[in-house]
Design a protein around this nucleic acid. Structure first.
Length: 470
RNA sequence: GGCGCCUUGGCGGAGUGGUUACGCAGAGGUCUGCAAAACCUCGUACACCGGUUCAAUUCCGGUAGGCGCCUCCA
């Protein structure tokens, strides 16, 4: 199993510390608003990673966080907490806002058939862990206190800029925001923020340094290490987190433990809409429910996401999504059709076993090579073209079922729709065949349309009429 | 201003130092009562300019354009 590692800028073999276990930590959402399609690209890709690891006989231990406190509207630690801001906007408490959007996110995860992480951890449920980690940093002398909080002194951590290949002086010179003058270094960040003296926040906790709330970055370090140990096999997240969030996670974690924080860093690139990034300020993020309301299926959304590589800047459009929908339908129709054809066909030959085994292998190889999902899909297309062109028979039924299950497990897409025909429909099909025999074309066409409305397709073949699920 | 990434046929999108990506759309054909589907064939893509090489879309340098991060943000 190979993956591009942001740490080394190379595609590398994954070598877990304790195989077959492989620990994976994914930066989850900040739950102050609805998740949009860009988020779902990210999480479907992470889901694909987990599926690919399993395919390689590894046993992923997957932890994802929910940021339900502390993510400020600015990484420079200025401004408001997003949750508190969302609460103000909606006339709710920060807790209510967090609950609402957490639920929205978890619903989306389920709907998109994203595998369930072993632990979904909330920042607000791990305040003591974060405080303990800050204390460790304090003991080692990495922290200092100013008016608004406890800060991490990035100049104390050698190689702070290495991960993101930052040029700190240049960053400072070109930065568009004014840095807090009390900070020792512009790149220093808050570990603990104090509550404003004059008002009570919805979310605040006591700490050795005073009442307040944790900075955004500390949660990921505290929770990942709590559930997965000091060194992670794989840490994933959006590409935008490299420069600040992940750089800070490394600084905090490695300063505290003296050990490597994560061996492999995987980053999902952004999705562009009309050539631009999806962002709140542009208002160009479409929600999952909006897409579903347009009649696009879950499988089509997944297929569409898999059609581009996770490291490329993918383009998103509703038109592209509709194309994926028709592509998916075609795959499903063809596979379901040939399956039904095989059920109705007798032969002593076993045609498909070797070929489908070969395709399973090429699909596995594509996924195992830095999650090359476009290539995996091309192999899926090739497999289905091969199968539909074959003279499949009853012997091939288990092989086809096995292949469909393999695709469902690895890509999370259903290509085989199995269901029993009702007596009613069986009768209609028989009637249509009779009408065809009698050359009553108008009647047979009418019956065909009638069946189509119920989701039953018919194809007239040399082996008679074969029905399949549309 | 600094750093990083990208530029593939009508669209989407892989990949490779010399051999078909693939999908969608399009053209022609086979089959069919007609459909539909399937199958077969087809387009001589790799931003531009140099360099390395027997050979470059693929490596190196430069030019142009785009995008991202350094605010919000997966």
């Amino acid at each position: 199993m190979k993956l591009y590692n942001t740490l080394t800028h190379k595609v590398e073999e994954i070598t877990p510390l304790n195989p077959p276990a492989v620990t994976v930590y994914t930066c989850g959402p900040t739950v102050y608003d609805y998740a949009h399609i860009g988020h779902w690209f990210n999480y479907v890709r992470m889901d694909t990673l987990i599926r690919a690891l399993k395919l390689n006989a590894l046993e992923p231990k997957w932890v994802m966080n929910i940021t339900d406190v502390g993510h400020l509207v600015s990484d420079a630690d200025e401004g408001e907490d997003k949750l508190e801001k969302g609460a103000k906007r909606e006339g709710k408490t920060a807790w209510e806002v967090a609950d609402f959007y957490t639920q929205d996110f978890l619903d989306g995860m389920r709907q998109l058939h994203i595998l369930k992480p072993d632990h979904i951890v909330k920042a607000t449920k791990h305040i003591p862990d974060q405080i303990a980690l800050i204390q460790r940093l304090e003991e080692k002398g990495f922290t200092y206190i100013i008016d608004d909080g406890v800060y991490y002194d990035t100049s104390m951590f050698e190689g702070y800029e290495a991960f993101a290949r930052l040029d700190l002086e240049a960053l400072q010179a070109g930065a568009r925001v004014a840095f807090n003058k009390q900070k020792r270094n512009p790149s220093d960040f808050a570990l603990w923020k104090f509550s404003p003296k004059d008002k009570k926040r919805d979310m605040e906790w006591d700490s050795p340094w005073g009442k307040g709330f944790p900075g955004w970055h500390i949660e990921c370090s505290a929770m990942s290490m709590k559930y997965l140990g000091d060194t992670l096999d794989i840490h994933t997240g959006g590409i935008d987190h490299i420069a600040v969030h992940h750089t800070n996670e490394i600084a905090q974690s490695e300063a505290a433990t003296g050990k490597r924080f994560a061996n492999t860093w995987m980053h999902s690139n952004h999705v562009l809409v009309d050539g631009e990034k999806i962002s709140k300020s542009l208002g160009n993020g479409i929600r999952l429910q909006e897409i579903l309301a347009m009649g696009i299926s879950i499988d089509a959304i997944r297929l569409h996401i898999l059609e581009s590589h996770y490291r490329s800047q993918s383009k998103f459009s509703m038109e592209g999504l509709r194309i994926s929908e028709s592509t998916l339908r075609k795959l499903q129709h063809n596979f379901s059709w040939i399956y039904q054809y095989a059920i109705n066909t007798y032969s002593t030959k076993h045609l498909l076993e070797g070929d489908l085994k070969k395709f399973k292998k090429t699909i596995s190889e594509a996924l195992s090579n830095d999650l090359n999902t476009p290539k995996a899909l091309s192999q899926l297309h090739a497999a289905i073209t091969m199968v539909t062109a074959s003279e499949a028979s009853q012997h091939d039924i288990p092989i086809m079922e096995d292949f469909a299950e393999f695709i469902r497990e690895t890509l999370g897409i259903s290509i085989l729709h199995k269901f029993e025909l009702s007596h009613e429909n069986k009768k209609l099909i028989a009637e249509r065949e009779q009408a065809r025999t009698n050359k009553e074309w108008a009647k047979s066409d009418e019956l065909r349309d009638h069946l189509a409305k119920q989701g039953i397709g018919v194809r007239d073949t040399a082996h008679g009429t074969i029905w399949f699920r549309l």
